[in-house]
């Protein structure tokens, strides 16, 4: 059985890949430009938020998470959950000593 997969990339996907690549470059430029602005205490959250957005774009587009099976998406979300546990529980201990 060799039926076409539902996530098979159509030819129009090229435009979407290029568009989101441009978005990634814009986000990178924004993060670089942000170092020139006096953002004060918002500087670190802003830089990390831009980086997190870039990661989300790469995962959903280049890694095709949006077209992935439910199981693959579940694995991706669960990995984020474990990493969240790692950071939240460690800092909960570290910051309350």
């Amino acid at each position: 059985m060799n039926t076409p997969r539902p996530d098979r990339t159509p030819a129009s996907a090229t435009g979407r890949f290029v568009a989101l690549y441009v978005v990634l470059l814009v986000l990178l430029a924004a993060n670089l430009a942000g170092t020139l602005l006096p953002l004060g205490p918002w500087a670190i959250p802003a830089r990390l938020a831009v980086a997190a957005t870039m990661v989300a774009v790469i995962a959903t587009t280049f890694m095709r998470l949006r077209q992935g099976t439910v199981l693959v998406r579940l694995v991706a979300v669960m990995s984020l959950l474990w990493i969240l546990f790692l950071f939240v529980l460690t800092f909960a201990d570290f910051l309350t000593r």
């Binding site: 993060n31 670089l32 170092t35 831009v50 980086a51 990661v55 995962a59």
Partner: peptide
């Protein structure tokens, strides 16, 4: 390869940009 991209985005932000 996309995962390697993701790691670099985080490495670049945390090592090169956060301190600026």
């Amino acid at each position: 390869w996309a995962f390697v991209d993701i790691v670099w985005v985080l490495v670049y932000c945390s090592l090169y940009l956060v301190g600026r």
